[in-house]
Design a protein around this nucleic acid. Structure first.
Lengths: 209, 209
DNA sequence: CTCCTTTTGTGAAGATTATAACATACGCTG
DNA sequence: CAGCGTATGTTATAATCTTCACAAAAGGAG
C-alpha cells in the first residue's frame, strides 16, 4: 500500500463491502468476484477493485476473492479487528436508543456507559448500560481507556461536552447534535445530522429528477 | 439558476448554512458576509458563494446577505418552506427515539405515526405519536398523504418494508437499517448507517494523520 | 460627483474522484 | 503441458468538485 490519501467515500464503501461479505460468509460462500460484490452493494466492479487496490492485492486473477479472507483484511483496514471503548453523552431518547443499538456491539464497539445531567435518570440503566452523572465523565474516560465519544445532547451543550471529552483524551467523536463543532485536528469528528439528511431528500424530491 | 446538476455536498452545506443563519437571526443579526458564514460552519467563503450561485444571486456586493431573506431562500431551495408528512416503521428503541426528535418538527417534518409488529407496543404512544400495527401502513400512507418514510427495523425486514412503502406511493425514504436497499429511481433514498460512521472514525484513527 | 473600500458573483485553473479499458496472471480442460 | 476463459490490478481518460483570482457593483466619504 502506497502512502496516499484515501477518499472518505472509499472508506464508507469498504465498510459496506464488509457488511455484505459477512452476509455472504454466513451463507457459506467461499469465493466472490468484484462483480458480485458490486451487485450486492449497488456499485460498480471497477469501483470495488479500485477501492481495494488502495490497500493491497487481495484477489486471485481469474478467480476472485476469498470471502472470509477479504472480510478479515477489510476489518483490519477499518481498524475494527479489535474492540473500541465508547461512551455516549446524553441519555435522552436518542442517547439511550444508541446505547441499545445492536450494530455497534456486532462491529466491535463497546458502549461502556451513558452520561447525563438529569437526576431522574442518573443511576438507572439503559438495558445493561449504566447512566452516570455528567461530572464523572472525565475520570471515567481516563480510567477506562475510552477512545470514542458519542454526542447526543441538545445542540447548545454539544461544544462544551466535546471540549471536556477532548480534554480527557478522547480520540474520536460522533456528533448527533445539530450544530457545527470544532475539535483540534488530532481528534476525529463526524457529524450525523438527521434533519440535514431529511433535507437532502426533500431537495431531491422538489428539484431534481 | 441554470439547469444543472447540483452536487449533493452543496445541498448538505446549504442545510448547515440554513441552521446557522437561523441562529444568527435569533441573535438579531441583519446582514452577514460569506466570510462570516464560512467561519460559522467551518468552511470557506468561496465555497459559500459558489453553493449559493447555483440557485441565484442573493447578496449585495460590498454588503453581504440579508440574514433572514437568505435563510428564506435556502429553506425554499431545500423544499422545507412547507410541511412534509413522515412515518417511521419500527417502534423499537431507535424508531421511538426518532419519533421524539425535536429537530424534525423544527424543520417542518411532521411525524404522523409509528408502525410496528409487536402487539406489546401497537396501540400505545411514543410521546404524542401513535403506534399502529404494520399491516395498516399502506392505507395510512395513502389516506394521509405521507411523502417520507423512515426505516428503523432490523436489517432483514428492511427491503420488504421499503417495497411496501414504494407500492403505497411514498416518495422518499431515510434508511437506518444496516443493509443496502433498492428502490425504483423515482424514489429518493438515503442511508444513515451508524456503524459505518463509527468505522470511518476508527479508520482515520488507525491510519491517517 | 468621483474615489475608495468592501464583498459579491463567476470564469478559469487545479485537485480529486470515478469510469473505462486493457494487459497480466491464474486455473482448468483436453 | 499448452491454450483458453475469466477476473484481477493498473494505467489512462473523463467527469466532478473545490479553490483561486479578479472584475463588477454597491455604499459611503470627501
Amino acid at each position: 500500500m502506497k502512502s496516499q490519501k484515501i477518499p472518505e467515500a472509499t472508506i464508507i464503501r469498504l465498510s459496506v463491502y464488509s457488511r455484505y461479505l459477512k452476509q455472504l460468509e454466513k451463507n457459506g460462500l467461499i469465493t466472490v468476484s468484484s462483480g458480485t460484490i458490486a451487485e450486492g452493494v449497488d456499485g460498480s466492479p471497477a469501483q470495488v477493485r479500485k477501492d481495494l487496490a488502495y490497500f493491497g492485492e487481495f484477489g486471485t486473477r481469474g478467480v476472485g476473492y476469498n470471502v472470509s479472507d477479504l472480510n478479515r483484511y477489510i476489518t483490519k483496514i477499518l481498524g475494527i479487528d479489535n474492540k473500541w471503548n465508547v461512551i455516549i453523552v446524553g441519555a435522552g431518547n436518542l442517547g439511550s436508543a444508541l446505547s441499545q443499538y445492536k450494530g455497534f456491539d456486532e462491529r466491535g464497539f463497546n458502549v461502556l456507559a451513558l452520561f447525563d445531567n438529569d437526576p431522574e435518570i442518573v443511576g438507572k440503566k439503559a438495558g445493561k448500560i449504566p447512566v452516570f452523572s455528567a461530572p464523572r465523565m472525565t475520570s471515567f474516560i481516563k480510567e477506562n481507556n475510552v477512545e470514542i465519544g458519542i454526542i447526543a445532547v441538545p445542540a447548545p451543550f454539544a461544544q462544551d461536552i466535546v471540549d471536556e471529552m477532548v480534554g480527557a483524551g478522547i480520540k474520536a467523536i460522533l456528533n448527533f447534535a445539530p450544530r457545527v463543532i470544532s475539535v483540534p485536528d488530532y481528534v476525529e469528528l463526524r457529524n450525523v445530522d438527521l434533519a440535514v439528511n431529511m433535507e437532502v431528500l426533500t431537495f431531491n424530491m422538489t428539484f431534481q429528477k
